[in-house]
Write a protein that binds this DNA or RNA. Sequence first.
DNA 1: CTACGTTTGTGAAACATTTCAACCCCACGA
DNA 2: TCGTGGGGTTGAAATGTTTCACAAACGTAG
Lengths: 340, 340
Amino acid sequence: MLNSRTPSVKDVAAAAGVSLGTVSNVMNRPEVVSARTRERVERAMAELGFVRNESARQLRAGTSRTLAYVMLDGTNPFFHDVAQGIELAAEDADLSLFICNSNSRAEREEAHLDRLLQQRVQGILITPVNSEAPYLYDLTRRGVPLVIVDRRRDDESCCSVAVDDVHGGRVAIEHLVEQGHARVAFIGGPESIGQVRERLQGAREVWAELGLPADDLIFLPTDALTVAEGRSAGERLAGLPARRRPTAAFCANDLLALGLLQQGIGAGLRVPDDLAIVGFDDIEFAAAAAVPLTSVRQPRQELGRAAAQLVLDEATNPDHEHQQLFFTPELVARASSRAR
Amino acid sequence: MLNSRTPSVKDVAAAAGVSLGTVSNVMNRPEVVSARTRERVERAMAELGFVRNESARQLRAGTSRTLAYVMLDGTNPFFHDVAQGIELAAEDADLSLFICNSNSRAEREEAHLDRLLQQRVQGILITPVNSEAPYLYDLTRRGVPLVIVDRRRDDESCCSVAVDDVHGGRVAIEHLVEQGHARVAFIGGPESIGQVRERLQGAREVWAELGLPADDLIFLPTDALTVAEGRSAGERLAGLPARRRPTAAFCANDLLALGLLQQGIGAGLRVPDDLAIVGFDDIEFAAAAAVPLTSVRQPRQELGRAAAQLVLDEATNPDHEHQQLFFTPELVARASSRAR
DNA sequence: CTACGTTTGTGAAACATTTCAACCCCACGA
DNA sequence: TCGTGGGGTTGAAATGTTTCACAAACGTAG
């Protein structure tokens, strides 16, 4: 109040009648200072309302206490769950987490990374717009610990944490076939997204293995993985001639599935009787949908947690080796695909 | 690569054959340095891959370039939309945004604030667990710019940005009465949340003004504002004797409304014919629900943006005065409350 | 040719912390 | 008594910027 400047170690030292080195010791290695002086210093800190200046600490120590996650799409709850997992791991390691959102724009992504570099964050987790972007390789060259989340790189030039999307596609289709469906739509796109390709690939693989005619697995491409695109896919589905119309749809993510569900119910379809639906991700709202949504669950928090552990290993362990972690997704069956 | 240490201004200065003060000038006031040397310095920076050390900058300059938002509940998309608004304003002011999540736990909240204080952030935006918490008052006393978002304080001891919840309650009920409903449930809780109280108050006010019997506005309390609680409220609703059973429900937020909708549809109710539903917040998923949800829209991004502007004013304008901003929410009518 | 103003560049101080070699003091063993 | 060891504390250096008073260079007017 009276003294506007915020107190520094020097002020604390003066107030406690010790040297400033001792104050630092109280904070960083309390065991070397005698109980009596430690207490005195702590009292002085409390009285002055001392708060350690993190910039100065970081400048001298050379190491920051923050991690960063650059997420791809803030409107998709999936990424917030991943972030939550990272946050938990960061908390355990006594680190702060910077969350940025690129909104799927490479230019925002690059701006964020630049900022983070200036902050000298300990490590960066990212779900990139494009995992091959040159500025991502620059990071590695600079020695910044980097983990790619929910995407992969073909070469193994950095750590990554992802989910076996081919397998995810397989279990979704296996489930639908088990439920008696013989004509199924795959809804998703654009194909430039690796995940979409792989989920489709898994679907096709198992469809062929089961000896079903390729024509009866209908690919309905979309322009994005959003609720609106799901609705529009639903309209296209309804437009198909009855004998071609699938009895079930497997959507590349839950947002699409929710859009499809909404469009279907609005058009008077009964789900799952007229149309069974399976989504992907198992976001919170999947279970909360009007007809609870069957979905392929990704271990979202686990994904984040594991990624954080990898980045920490890279940051602290001198003989760290890059790893490509792979989680296996599993099907969560709910009403939207109940047996016919 | 070869030289592991990341280059500093000093290295750049040496490489460009100028003093380090000049390098600083190139970054901070390019107009005072001649075109020739500026270019030389810039080339040296690029060659060395120089990245300014933000801690050092901050230490010397005494001011950080970050804002922080401590959100209340990461599982509610509402807060992410608010954060998005803040982010946009921060971007305009060339600031970074730290996003923290207290998960409705005061202890996490306090830990986050402590961190942020150490980082010397320029200002803090927060949707607090409790706007009267003593540690929030401490912040103000310390002179940290603070804005309370989506909550208020009775005294006007800091800036806040909120929505007129009483009005929101009024328009929701007016709408339902217009649609011909004469027995309506208010679903929400706990009452310790100011918003819940005020939305209920608005509902009761207008109900009385319209001359409807108080008994026909039924208060169904919940333990939280979640989808699960919405479902359970739906069960309680179904348990009411038919002549007491309301024909419409006004939920204190969209998550409750979605839960209620799910339970209702599952139990075979037709929405809106058997039960009309109005939510609050108008989150993305409201429009995407099986029956698109009528909701009272809060200007979520605007809320964040305005809050950011207030905090910046407090941080930079010496004769800043605390303001309590108030937005007026508006009803967005959709299928879940279509005329009967 | 001098005095002066303007433009451009310099160098040292300052910011708040951590770290580390050095120092003091005291107890203890010889 | 002296020497030794060790617990506790100190003081100064170092971290990478920014800022600011000042110096150098260069025109230009008188």
